[in-house]
């Protein structure tokens, strides 16, 4: 069942064309990984899905949400950023509870309970009262995942969630994401973590110069790459 349908997305920044007519479908519960060289439009694509970028042309429909209401769309589509972007003046608990309280009308007790439960789910029970500055990068990113989940999204977007992390912290974040996917969450993940893609993705999309040039399930993607540009890309990132 289709959850997301993007058609003909075009996005230009000045004379640079970041997205050059992208179509994308995602089924409910599906986990899609997007990879590709830098500047290929991966981040722009998922930022157009929750309208952090306004596409110059094309449409994005997330099932059941009127596309005209940006705020309603964003409440149902969670996003995790490369730089975490936690609110530095709020504790981990407050970071997670603030949106459900202010936007969904939960009481303080309800929102706090939701936050505590989510912290436990991302293996951070006991860290609720810490400020982001008191948490490691991996911990901050897991709080950021919990913050997005607190709105009970139907779709989660991850924009290079481990690119800003020290190597030994990548694993703890990816584990949370794998578990999330196994729990049935629909996800689109922009990442260079090919191990994660192989382990957790249903399909992998490869972007180059603003287009999706290849899309395949992991096994075919890695073992029989369906595009010459992809062969070179995989060679570069896996071949050493």
């Amino acid at each position: 069942m289709t959850l997301l349908a993007a058609r003909g997305l075009v996005k230009r920044f000045g004379s640079f064309t970041a997205l050059d007519g992208v179509d994308l479908d995602l089924n409910r519960g599906e986990r899609l990984v997007i990879c590709g060289p830098s500047g290929s439009g991966k981040s722009t694509l998922i930022r157009c899905i929750n309208r952090l970028e306004e596409p110059d042309a094309g449409t994005v429909v997330v099932e059941g949400i009127p596309t005209t209401d940006r705020q309603a769309l964003r409440r149902k589509v969670g996003m995790v950023f490369q730089q975490f972007n936690l609110f530095p003046n709020l504790t981990a608990r407050e970071n997670i509870a603030v949106a459900p309280r202010k936007l969904l009308g939960l009481s303080r007790a309800e929102a706090d309970a939701r936050a505590e439960a989510l912290l436990a789910r991302v293996q951070l029970a006991g860290h609720a009262d810490k400020l982001p500055s008191g948490l490691s990068g991996g911990q901050q990113q897991r709080v950021a995942i919990a913050r997005a989940l607190a709105m009970e999204p139907v779709l989660m977007l991850f924009d290079e969630p481990t690119s800003a992390l020290d190597p030994e912290m990548i694993r703890e974040v990816l584990d949370v994401m794998v578990e999330l996917g196994q729990g049935g969450m629909s996800m689109i993940v922009v990442t260079h973590e090919m191990g994660f893609a192989r382990r957790a993705a249903d399909r992998i999309a490869f972007m180059d110069q603003g287009r999706i040039v290849a899309m395949a399930p992991p096994q075919q993607f890695f073992d029989a790459p369906p595009h010459p540009r992809l062969v070179r890309f995989l060679d570069n990132i896996l071949g050493h």
Binding site: L52, Q71, R74, F81, N85, F87, A99, A144
Partner: peptide, 20 residues
């Protein structure tokens, strides 16, 4: 990134300014 984080959660600009 602070603006974007709040926007991604569903806060409008005015509420983002006020709350965060």
């Amino acid at each position: 990134g602070q603006w974007e984080a709040a926007a991604a959660l569903g806060f409008d600009r005015h509420a983002t300014l006020r709350e965060f």
